[in-house]
Design a protein around this nucleic acid. Structure first.
Lengths: 202, 202
DNA sequence: TGAACCGTTAACCAAATGGTTAAACGAGTT
DNA sequence: AACTCGTTTAACCATTTGGTTAACGGTTCA
């Protein structure tokens, strides 16, 4: 993300790129070194081991993803215009880092324990409770249909994130070529928000 | 899946299990051999190389996933009761093989070319066109709201599949423990169908 | 000038890993 | 009993890979 040029930074950036694309098991220390344009020994000089280096990249990635989820569930929306802008910027932010979700999903599945530890001290942990209450209020008032709040939240995230996770498969099944896929994503911003709002009509 | 006991079958079953959990890069031939309870050399005796063995497992998996997607987009539904049963059985079938989607998404991302070749000769390739026409008819008639058919289809698949792909993350974020997660999935069947139907109300 | 220090590198090492091979095994067959 | 032939195994091999080390080079500072 940053553009500093210190060796440490170069290594992290290279590691991020390689780990995100190939995963922990698929990444080679040599590839990371090459990507950073330095000697392999430097990786160990700055970050003792492959696991240590991976942990840094992974933690950072989780942080990034969670802060995005947080943003979407930040209170005082559900006002029709707000939900539109929030979903739009959510999809937009994933589009900037399309490999992030699959990377995280995959590594968490490989080693579910890792995430638990991360969570203990992650500051940007999504505040679910607030949003749930807000939803319940609206249902009480009758402004939206009664639905399970958690199911709803999972659905919104699903619709935003899944297209990126499944991109190559979707491209193949729906015969969408690459410039068209970008447009598909762009259109998706409007679609998802109107779809959700429509489903919530009382 | 099958319960035959021939060595060849045992190997495939073991390979399926290991590859699905660890991916191509993370899987070790020794682990597969151990899982099958045989010598490592047997793997090469029956299936020349790791890649060949992986291809078989992967192709089979894609077949499985696509046939499920196909099923959901098989014509003459959209009748309220039918959509409910189709989505229900779709989610149910994924629940029987919860690692399948993430496995495929991930491996396709690692090597997008693989899927293209597979597709040429896959019999159960989803017939999108028929479903799109059906949707357009209904929109014409005014029985459902006007939406982009592809966006809709992607949304349905997203809502059904994503919870399995993101399971560990969802469990952590929403504090759902394991028995409760199964119930969450069970409830999801009804939720998704009613959510979709509700969103499509004219 | 030269010692101390940090960043950097080439060469090296041990373990892991995919793959091979030659021999052994075992059920038919003659 | 001996021969055949598909199956199985232990031992082995070459390469890859994460990690280490010793030396090199520049900068600082006394």
């Amino acid at each position: 993300m940053q553009t500093t040029n210190t060796t440490e930074q170069q290594i992290i950036e290279a590691a991020r790129k390689i780990f995100m694309h190939r995963g922990l098991a698929g990444a080679r220390m040599q590839d990371i070194a090459d990507e950073a344009g330095i000697n392999k020994a430097m990786l160990h000089y700055y970050y003792r081991s492959k696991d240590k280096l991976f942990d840094i990249v992974f933690t950072e990635a989780v942080e990034m993803l969670l802060s995005r989820v947080s943003a979407i569930f930040t209170a005082d929306l559900l006002l029709e215009d707000k939900i539109q802008s929030v979903i739009g910027s959510y999809i937009g932010s994933i589009a900037e880092n399309p490999y992030l979700p699959l990377f995280i999903m995959n590594e968490i599945n490989q080693n579910p324990d890792r995430i638990v530890q991360r969570f203990v001290n992650t500051p940007s942990f999504p505040n679910i409770q607030g949003f749930v209450l807000l939803l319940k209020e609206e249902m009480e008032k009758g402004t939206i249909r009664r639905v399970d709040p958690v199911q709803l939240m999972v659905s919104v995230v699903s619709m935003c994130v899944f297209p990126f996770v499944a991109k190559p498969l979707l491209k193949a099944v729906f015969r969408i070529e690459d410039p068209a896929f970008a447009q598909f994503i762009e259109e998706r911003k409007a679609f998802v928000s109107s779809f959700v709002l429509s489903a919530l009509r009382p």
